[in-house]
Design a protein around this nucleic acid. Structure first.
Lengths: 334, 334
DNA sequence: CTGTTAGCGCATTCAG
DNA sequence: CTGAATGCGCTAACAG
C-alpha cells in the first residue's frame, strides 16, 4: 500500500556518506562534524526519511513502549489516568499502548499476551486482582509491571496508589463527625473489584453500636445510584447520610431524591468519591474525596522510565486522597 | 532487563526442525504434517515462545497496527468511540495505538509523526479540521486515513460520520414542532471544532421571524452549561427551550435551574446531544440525540481492514443520529 | 570523525 | 513436506 519509503541507505546514498554516519546523526551521537550533520539532516527532510521502528527495535531490542491494561476507559477516573499517563510517558520518550480488560481476568491475560507480542517493555495494571497465570507470565519472561490505584505493600510486586481501606474509613469518620449515626454506603459491583471491596471493609471497620452502616450494591452508574438510594431510604427511614464510593453514584442520589421531597443536605447528606469534574457544579456542590490519579500516573511513569533506562528498581508508593468539603454534607440537626 | 526470551531458533533446536518449518506452523501455513505441527506447537508452549513483533514487521513490512488521534479521551463520546474501535480492530487482528491531540493541530501533527514512527499503517482522525502539513504528510507517504464523526463528501479523502448540520437543524425543528419560538442554543468552544461549528450553522439555518435563536458559547462541561443558562435566562426572559450540543451542557442546565424556581420541562424545555449513559437517569429524563458512535467505529474498522488486507478503497459513509424523546421537552403551554 | 561488517528474529524464495 | 540461504532496516562494535 504505502509507497516506497526511504531507508537509511537512501539518505546515505544521497549524501555520499555511510549508513553508520547517518545513523549517528539521526540518533544524535556527538562524534559527528557539524558540517556532515547538516548534510545528513538536509537529505533526511528532503527524502522525508523516517527511521523504521521495527528495524530499530530489532537491532536495539528496545521498543520504547509500555503497556497499560485498564478495566474500562468509559469512566472518567480511568480516562483521566490514561490521559495523564500518556503525557508523562510521552515526555520521557516512551509510548503508551492500551488495552481494555472489561474487568475480566481472562481478557486481561489475553490482552497482556497481545501487548507483549507488540513489544511492550513494561506493564501497568489496574487494581490488585489478577490471574496467577498473568503474574506467572510476567515472572517467567521477566517483564516489569506495576499495580496501580491501590497501595498494597504486602505484595511482592510494586504498587503505586492509595489505601482504599483508609480512604473509606476516613470518609465515614468525616461524616460521623458531623453527627450522623445512620449512614448508607453505596458502591458498585464487588465482583472483580478489589478496590471497592477494600473500601467497603474500611467503612465496615468503623461500624459500632454508635454507628450503623447500611451497604447497598448497585451498577456503577447514575441509574444505579438513583435506584439504590430510593430502595435504601424506603427500608430504613433513619438514614441521614449517603456515602458513595463513586461520584456517579452520588449524582444518582441527587436524581433519586427528586420528587421525594427530600433535600440535600438538609434531609440527606451525600458524599462522593473521585472528585469528578462536575462535582463542584452540581447543586448543591458535592463533598467528595479527590483521588490523586494524575499523581499516580506521573509517579508510575517516572518509576517505569527510571527502571527501563537506568535499571533503578521500582518501589511501592502510597499517595493520599483528600476530602474536598463542599455543601452536600451538613451537621445533623437535632 | 527482560531475561532472554526464546527465539524461533530455540524452538527449531528443541524440535530438531528448521526455523522455516517453525515459522510455517506458527503462521498457520497448510503444507505441514500434522505430526510436525504438533511437535512444534508443543515446543512453543514449552518454551513459551512468542514471535518477535519487530522482526516480523521488518520482514513482512506490516505492523498490523492502526492509529487514532483524538482531541481528548476525557469526554465520554470519545471514550466510547475508542472503546468500540479497539474492539472492532482487535476482532480483525489489528491493534489500535492512540494519541491525544488536545484539539491542537500542532500536537496532532506531532502525534501523527510519532505514530508513523511506530509503524501505524493507517490513521483515524477526528473531525474535519486538520493542518495542511498533516494531510500533505499522509499524501506524500501514501498513508491511508479516515476522518470521523463528520460526514463531508466534498472532501477528497473519506469521511465516516454524521451530518452535524442536519442533526442540529433537525433538533431545532423538533423543538419548534412543540411550539417553542425562542430557543437558547448552548454549545462548547467554536475554536478548532468544526463539528460544533457545523451544528451551529445548521441551527442558524432555521432562524426566522417565527423562530428566534440565541447562541451561547461556554466551556464544554457541566459548569459551563450551568453558567450559560443562567446568563441567557437573565437577559432574555422569553426563552422557553434550551438546545445543548452536548449532554454535559444539558446537565449544567439542570443544575443551573436549581434554586431559580424554574422547572424542567414546565418552565424550560431542555434537549441534549450524545445520549450519554446517564441521560435517562436524570430527572426529568433527558430528550437528546443519540449519535451512532459505535456504528462509526465498526464501519471505520471494517473499511480500514478491508483496505489494508484486500486493497479495497475506502468510501465515505453517512450515518444518522436519532432523537430519543424522553421528558425534558414539552409542548409550550399557551 | 567516518566506513565496514556482523547480526537482531523472522518470512520467504528456492532446492530437494 | 522440509531445509538452507537471503534480506528486511538499523545499531554497534571495530577498524581506519
Amino acid at each position: 500500500m504505502s509507497g516506497k519509503v526511504g531507508s537509511i541507505r537512501d539518505v546515505a546514498k544521497e549524501t555520499g556518506l555511510s549508513i553508520a554516519t547517518v545513523s549517528r546523526v539521526v540518533n544524535g551521537a556527538k562524534n559527528v562534524t557539524p558540517k556532515t550533520r547538516d548534510r545528513v539532516m538536509d537529505a533526511c527532510k528532503k527524502l522525508d526519511y523516517l527511521p523504521n521502528p521495527a528495524a530499530k527495535a530489532l537491532s536495539t531490542r528496545k521498543t520504547k513502549t509500555v503497556a497499560a491494561i485498564i478495566p474500562t476507559i468509559e469512566h472518567s477516573v480511568f480516562a483521566k489516568f490514561i490521559s495523564a499517563l500518556e503525557q508523562s510517558l510521552e515526555d520521557g520518550g516512551y509510548s503508551l499502548v492500551l488495552a481494555i480488560s472489561h474487568a475480566d481476568e481472562e481478557d486481561e491475560l489475553k490482552a497482556a499476551r497481545k501487548l507483549l507480542g507488540m513489544g511492550a517493555e513494561a506493564f501497568i495494571l489496574s487494581g490488585d486482582a489478577h490471574s496467577p497465570e498473568l503474574l506467572d507470565l510476567f515472572k517467567r519472561r521477566n517483564v516489569p509491571f506495576i499495580v496501580t490505584s491501590v497501595w498494597n505493600p504486602t505484595r511482592d510486586y510494586p504498587s503505586i496508589g492509595y489505601n482504599n481501606f483508609m480512604l473509606a474509613a476516613n470518609a465515614v469518620k468525616f461524616i460521623a463527625s458531623k453527627g450522623h449515626r445512620d449512614i448508607a454506603v453505596l458502591h458498585g459491583p464487588l465482583l472483580m473489584n478489589d478496590r471497592t471491596r477494600m473500601r467497603r471493609e474500611g467503612a465496615l471497620s468503623l461500624q459500632s453500636d454508635r454507628l450503623e452502616l447500611t451497604f447497598v450494591e448497585s451498577s456503577l452508574d447514575v441509574a444505579g445510584g438513583k435506584k439504590a438510594i430510593r430502595e435504601v431510604l424506603e427500608h430504613n427511614g433513619k438514614i441521614t447520610a449517603a456515602l458513595c464510593f463513586s461520584d456517579v453514584l452520588a449524582l444518582g442520589v441527587y436524581m433519586g431524591l427528586k420528587g421525594t421531597g427530600r433535600k440535600i443536605p438538609k434531609d440527606l447528606s451525600v458524599m462522593g468519591f473521585d472528585n469528578i469534574d462536575w462535582a463542584e457544579a452540581v447543586e448543591p456542590p458535592l463533598t467528595t474525596i479527590e483521588l490523586p490519579d494524575r499523581k499516580i500516573a506521573a509517579e508510575v511513569a517516572s518509576q517505569i522510565i527510571a527502571l527501563l533506562e537506568y535499571g533503578r528498581p521500582i518501589g511501592s508508593v502510597e499517595l493520599f486522597g483528600k476530602i474536598i468539603e463542599r455543601n452536600s454534607v451538613s451537621d445533623v440537626t437535632v
